[in-house]
Design a protein around this nucleic acid. Structure first.
Lengths: 91, 91
DNA sequence: ATATCAATATCGATTTCCGATATTGATTGT
DNA sequence: ACAATCAATATCGGAAATCGATATTGATAT
Protein backbone atom coordinates (compact mmCIF):
# COMPACT_ATOMS: atom_id res chain seq x y z
CA UNK A 1 0.00 0.00 0.00
CA UNK A 2 1.93 2.96 -1.27
CA UNK A 3 0.95 6.53 -1.81
CA UNK A 4 -0.55 5.77 -5.19
CA UNK A 5 -3.03 3.31 -3.70
CA UNK A 6 -4.13 5.80 -1.08
CA UNK A 7 -4.67 8.48 -3.69
CA UNK A 8 -6.69 6.15 -5.85
CA UNK A 9 -8.94 5.21 -2.95
CA UNK A 10 -9.27 8.81 -1.87
CA UNK A 11 -10.39 10.04 -5.28
CA UNK A 12 -12.53 6.99 -5.95
CA UNK A 13 -14.41 7.86 -2.79
CA UNK A 14 -15.06 11.45 -3.84
CA UNK A 15 -16.14 10.59 -7.38
CA UNK A 16 -15.87 7.89 -10.00
CA UNK A 17 -12.40 7.93 -11.52
CA UNK A 18 -10.77 6.40 -14.59
CA UNK A 19 -7.20 5.56 -15.50
CA UNK A 20 -5.97 8.44 -17.59
CA UNK A 21 -7.64 10.98 -15.35
CA UNK A 22 -5.81 9.51 -12.39
CA UNK A 23 -2.52 9.61 -14.31
CA UNK A 24 -3.06 13.32 -14.99
CA UNK A 25 -4.05 14.02 -11.39
CA UNK A 26 -0.89 12.39 -10.07
CA UNK A 27 1.25 14.10 -12.68
CA UNK A 28 -0.03 17.48 -11.55
CA UNK A 29 1.30 16.69 -8.11
CA UNK A 30 4.68 15.74 -9.49
CA UNK A 31 4.14 12.01 -9.56
CA UNK A 32 4.92 10.65 -13.00
CA UNK A 33 3.37 7.21 -12.90
CA UNK A 34 3.53 4.97 -15.94
CA UNK A 35 0.29 3.62 -17.43
CA UNK A 36 1.96 0.24 -17.24
CA UNK A 37 2.02 0.71 -13.51
CA UNK A 38 -1.39 2.23 -12.95
CA UNK A 39 -3.66 -0.07 -14.95
CA UNK A 40 -2.48 -3.30 -13.35
CA UNK A 41 -2.90 -1.63 -9.96
CA UNK A 42 -6.51 -0.68 -10.77
CA UNK A 43 -7.25 -4.26 -11.84
CA UNK A 44 -5.64 -5.66 -8.77
CA UNK A 45 -7.59 -3.36 -6.48
CA UNK A 46 -10.79 -4.38 -8.22
CA UNK A 47 -10.02 -8.07 -7.76
CA UNK A 48 -9.21 -7.37 -4.12
CA UNK A 49 -12.66 -5.83 -3.70
CA UNK A 50 -11.44 -2.30 -3.01
CA UNK A 51 -12.92 -0.82 -6.19
CA UNK A 52 -16.05 -1.38 -8.24
CA UNK A 53 -15.86 -1.02 -12.02
CA UNK A 54 -18.52 0.40 -14.31
CA UNK A 55 -18.00 0.78 -18.05
CA UNK A 56 -19.41 3.89 -19.66
CA UNK A 57 -19.55 5.15 -23.19
CA UNK A 58 -18.04 8.65 -23.31
CA UNK A 59 -17.74 10.41 -26.68
CA UNK A 60 -17.86 7.07 -28.44
CA UNK A 61 -15.08 5.59 -26.30
CA UNK A 62 -15.43 3.02 -23.55
CA UNK A 63 -14.22 4.34 -20.27
CA UNK A 64 -13.93 2.30 -17.10
CA UNK A 65 -15.02 4.15 -14.03
CA UNK A 66 -14.00 2.99 -10.60
CA UNK A 67 -15.70 3.75 -7.32
CA UNK A 68 -14.56 2.83 -3.85
CA UNK A 69 -16.27 -0.09 -2.09
CA UNK A 70 -17.14 -0.37 1.58
CA UNK A 71 -14.10 -2.56 2.06
CA UNK A 72 -12.03 0.01 0.20
CA UNK A 73 -13.19 2.71 2.61
CA UNK A 74 -12.00 0.64 5.54
CA UNK A 75 -8.61 0.17 3.95
CA UNK A 76 -8.43 3.86 3.09
CA UNK A 77 -9.00 4.89 6.68
CA UNK A 78 -6.31 2.55 7.93
CA UNK A 79 -3.85 3.75 5.32
CA UNK A 80 -4.68 7.39 6.01
CA UNK A 81 -3.99 6.93 9.70
CA UNK A 82 -0.69 5.24 8.99
CA UNK A 83 0.36 7.87 6.46
CA UNK A 84 -0.47 10.58 8.97
CA UNK A 85 1.65 8.87 11.61
CA UNK A 86 4.59 8.87 9.27
CA UNK A 87 4.00 12.36 8.03
CA UNK A 88 3.83 14.05 11.39
CA UNK A 89 7.21 12.45 12.12
CA UNK A 90 8.90 14.43 9.40
CA UNK A 91 6.93 17.66 9.18
CA UNK B 1 12.98 9.43 -3.30
CA UNK B 2 10.50 7.45 -1.27
CA UNK B 3 9.27 7.85 2.24
CA UNK B 4 12.24 5.93 3.59
CA UNK B 5 14.72 8.41 2.15
CA UNK B 6 12.84 11.34 3.63
CA UNK B 7 12.79 9.71 7.05
CA UNK B 8 16.48 8.99 6.89
CA UNK B 9 17.30 12.60 6.03
CA UNK B 10 14.93 13.90 8.68
CA UNK B 11 16.46 11.85 11.47
CA UNK B 12 20.01 12.37 10.22
CA UNK B 13 19.38 16.07 10.55
CA UNK B 14 18.18 15.83 14.14
CA UNK B 15 20.96 13.54 15.28
CA UNK B 16 23.54 11.08 13.99
CA UNK B 17 21.81 7.83 13.07
CA UNK B 18 22.98 4.32 12.29
CA UNK B 19 21.46 1.43 10.35
CA UNK B 20 19.87 -0.79 12.93
CA UNK B 21 18.50 2.16 14.87
CA UNK B 22 16.83 3.39 11.71
CA UNK B 23 15.39 -0.06 11.08
CA UNK B 24 13.86 -0.08 14.55
CA UNK B 25 12.55 3.45 14.20
CA UNK B 26 10.77 2.58 10.95
CA UNK B 27 9.46 -0.68 12.37
CA UNK B 28 7.84 1.19 15.24
CA UNK B 29 5.90 3.16 12.69
CA UNK B 30 4.75 0.03 10.92
CA UNK B 31 7.38 0.06 8.19
CA UNK B 32 9.15 -3.28 8.06
CA UNK B 33 12.18 -2.54 5.96
CA UNK B 34 14.72 -5.25 5.26
CA UNK B 35 18.37 -4.65 6.18
CA UNK B 36 19.12 -5.69 2.62
CA UNK B 37 17.16 -2.65 1.54
CA UNK B 38 18.35 -0.11 4.07
CA UNK B 39 22.11 -0.54 4.01
CA UNK B 40 22.50 -0.14 0.26
CA UNK B 41 20.30 2.96 0.50
CA UNK B 42 22.54 4.47 3.18
CA UNK B 43 25.62 3.80 1.05
CA UNK B 44 23.98 5.28 -1.97
CA UNK B 45 22.93 8.41 -0.13
CA UNK B 46 26.47 8.81 1.15
CA UNK B 47 27.92 8.48 -2.35
CA UNK B 48 25.35 11.00 -3.56
CA UNK B 49 26.59 13.45 -0.95
CA UNK B 50 23.40 13.54 1.12
CA UNK B 51 24.95 11.93 4.18
CA UNK B 52 28.32 12.04 5.92
CA UNK B 53 29.64 8.89 7.57
CA UNK B 54 31.62 8.68 10.78
CA UNK B 55 32.70 5.39 12.29
CA UNK B 56 32.56 5.09 16.06
CA UNK B 57 33.50 2.40 18.50
CA UNK B 58 30.51 1.64 20.70
CA UNK B 59 30.80 -1.13 23.29
CA UNK B 60 33.59 -2.65 21.31
CA UNK B 61 31.65 -2.67 18.07
CA UNK B 62 32.11 -0.42 15.07
CA UNK B 63 29.05 1.59 14.34
CA UNK B 64 28.62 3.86 11.34
CA UNK B 65 26.91 7.10 12.15
CA UNK B 66 25.40 9.21 9.46
CA UNK B 67 24.63 12.91 9.55
CA UNK B 68 22.88 14.99 6.96
CA UNK B 69 24.99 17.22 4.69
CA UNK B 70 24.11 20.70 3.44
CA UNK B 71 23.11 19.18 0.14
CA UNK B 72 21.02 16.63 2.01
CA UNK B 73 19.17 19.43 3.78
CA UNK B 74 18.29 20.98 0.46
CA UNK B 75 16.95 17.69 -0.84
CA UNK B 76 15.05 17.12 2.40
CA UNK B 77 13.26 20.44 2.11
CA UNK B 78 12.22 19.74 -1.46
CA UNK B 79 10.97 16.28 -0.59
CA UNK B 80 9.14 17.55 2.46
CA UNK B 81 7.30 20.13 0.40
CA UNK B 82 6.34 17.54 -2.18
CA UNK B 83 5.19 15.07 0.45
CA UNK B 84 3.10 17.75 2.08
CA UNK B 85 1.47 18.58 -1.24
CA UNK B 86 0.45 14.98 -1.65
CA UNK B 87 -0.60 14.54 1.91
CA UNK B 88 -2.93 17.50 2.10
CA UNK B 89 -4.68 16.05 -0.96
CA UNK B 90 -5.79 12.99 0.97
CA UNK B 91 -6.17 14.17 4.53
C1' DA C 1 44.05 -16.97 20.28
C1' DT C 2 39.49 -17.55 20.02
C1' DA C 3 34.66 -16.96 21.26
C1' DT C 4 31.25 -13.45 21.43
C1' DC C 5 27.96 -10.18 19.89
C1' DA C 6 25.72 -6.28 17.58
C1' DA C 7 26.03 -4.06 13.54
C1' DT C 8 26.89 -4.05 8.89
C1' DA C 9 27.32 -6.13 4.29
C1' DT C 10 26.22 -9.32 0.52
C1' DC C 11 23.72 -11.53 -3.12
C1' DG C 12 20.46 -14.60 -5.59
C1' DA C 13 15.54 -14.70 -5.88
C1' DT C 14 11.37 -12.29 -6.04
C1' DT C 15 8.45 -8.49 -6.75
C1' DT C 16 7.42 -4.09 -8.61
C1' DC C 17 7.69 -0.69 -12.05
C1' DC C 18 8.72 1.30 -16.51
C1' DG C 19 7.54 2.66 -21.11
C1' DA C 20 7.07 1.59 -25.73
C1' DT C 21 3.76 -0.62 -28.31
C1' DA C 22 -0.66 -2.94 -29.23
C1' DT C 23 -5.52 -3.26 -28.70
C1' DT C 24 -10.15 -1.72 -28.04
C1' DG C 25 -14.59 0.10 -29.73
C1' DA C 26 -18.02 3.59 -30.75
C1' DT C 27 -18.25 7.42 -34.01
C1' DT C 28 -17.48 9.97 -38.27
C1' DG C 29 -16.72 10.68 -43.12
C1' DT C 30 -17.12 8.83 -47.54
C1' DA D 1 -21.12 -0.56 -44.99
C1' DC D 2 -16.45 0.02 -44.18
C1' DA D 3 -12.18 2.11 -43.13
C1' DA D 4 -10.06 5.70 -40.48
C1' DT D 5 -9.78 8.04 -36.21
C1' DC D 6 -8.89 8.87 -31.48
C1' DA D 7 -8.73 8.50 -26.42
C1' DA D 8 -8.49 5.15 -23.20
C1' DT D 9 -7.02 0.87 -21.79
C1' DA D 10 -4.07 -3.29 -21.90
C1' DT D 11 0.19 -5.87 -22.53
C1' DC D 12 4.79 -7.54 -21.78
C1' DG D 13 9.90 -7.85 -21.87
C1' DG D 14 13.41 -5.45 -19.59
C1' DA D 15 15.06 -2.70 -15.70
C1' DA D 16 15.11 -1.48 -11.01
C1' DA D 17 14.00 -2.01 -6.20
C1' DT D 18 13.34 -5.00 -2.39
C1' DC D 19 13.55 -9.11 0.31
C1' DG D 20 15.64 -12.09 3.63
C1' DA D 21 18.71 -15.52 4.78
C1' DT D 22 23.38 -15.75 5.43
C1' DA D 23 28.15 -14.01 5.83
C1' DT D 24 31.39 -10.73 7.48
C1' DT D 25 33.30 -7.35 10.51
C1' DG D 26 36.06 -5.88 14.56
C1' DA D 27 36.89 -4.55 19.33
C1' DT D 28 36.53 -6.77 23.74
C1' DA D 29 36.68 -10.40 27.27
C1' DT D 30 38.05 -14.82 28.78
Amino acid sequence: MGFIHIHILHHAKEEAIYGSWMLEELREHGYDISPGTLYPILHHMEVDGLLDKEEKNVNGKIRKYYRITTQGETILEEARTKAYELFKEIK
